[in-house]
Design a protein around this nucleic acid. Structure first.
Ligand SMILES: [Mn+2]
Ligand SMILES: [Mn+2]
Ligand SMILES: [Zn+2]
Ligand SMILES: [Zn+2]
Lengths: 141, 141
DNA sequence: TGGAAATCAATAAAAATTATCCAAAAGGAA
DNA sequence: TTCCTTTTGGATAATTTTTATTGATTTCCA
């Protein structure tokens, strides 16, 4: 759990309950899409508008407080900005697991340089089956 | 240029002019989004409907004849399915360049295994500035 | 404790995607 | 070929997703 208030102040954003709670649920659950955020915030703030969620997500992404995690064929998820990492995305249950770059980042950036490409951001996602789902599938057979 | 007709037959899809030309323009340009495909097909087939483009893209992706390339904050592009590779995406001009995995793929899959994750597909995109745009920016200063 | 600036909620509007329905075309069998 | 079944396309409507607008409310600093 981070210090959301300073994160907002540093970016010249006012700290409203709505905004704080959006950050809170994203942080709590790790990776959430717009609808998941909306339904969770609704529970504690029944009057919030979906447009408010969209607006806040947009500004928080712009200010790099949160980060978009695009997911093929589905809606993007969002996470609190943290150290660079990549994602293991389960195509069975939809779970998203963080994974450290370690030696990977060096290989990627050297490849970018080789192509005379000025690398600004890397987005790596591995799609497949998480341990839980593998076990579940194995049980059945 | 591939043999689109056999690619369709192998997947039990009928070869219509519309479908063939969709594959053609994707192949010609490398990476195109829905609207780009639509406008290019329109030129040679003025009666085609946008819904037809959507419908065909959907089936072609399902049958793995083409592949979706998600792009952050923009519409996905599509490419003819080919050997695994990753993308250098220019945030200035929108160009997409293919890039071979080489040693990278080994590192990624060993990382997946380490997390007991059954890897099915890898999606790696590097966002930044292509050589053309770097040069253009340097000229100005 | 004002008051400017930012934000919220409600709502409308726009954009993107999917569904429906019937005519037309494709492709296999005779 | 011709016939017949199935798939597909085009028009259009419907749905879903996202963005814009606007006036009321809230934040926060002087
Ligand atoms: Mn993450
Ligand atoms: Mn490519
Ligand atoms: Zn899973
Ligand atoms: Zn460029």
């Amino acid at each position: 759990m981070g210090d959301y208030i300073s994160m907002l102040k540093q970016n010249g954003l006012k700290t409203t309950f709505q905004r704080l709670y959006i950050m809170q649920v994203i942080d709590d659950y790790g990776h959430l899409d717009i609808d998941e955020i909306y339904s969770k915030v609704l529970l504690v703030h029944p009057s919030i508008s979906l447009a408010t969620i969209y607006k806040n997500i947009l500004t928080l992404v712009e200010k790099k407080v949160i980060k978009e995690v695009p997911i093929e064929g589905k809606k993007s998820k969002y996470e609190i900005l943290k150290q660079d990492h990549f994602h293991l995305i389960c195509i069975e249950c939809g779970s998203v697991e963080d994974c450290d770059y370690e030696e990977l980042s060096g290989v990627v950036s050297s490849s970018s340089r080789h192509h005379h490409f000025l690398q600004k951001k890397v987005e790596l996602s591995v799609y497949g089956y998480c341990k839980k789902c593998i076990d579940k599938i194995n049980e059945k057979s």
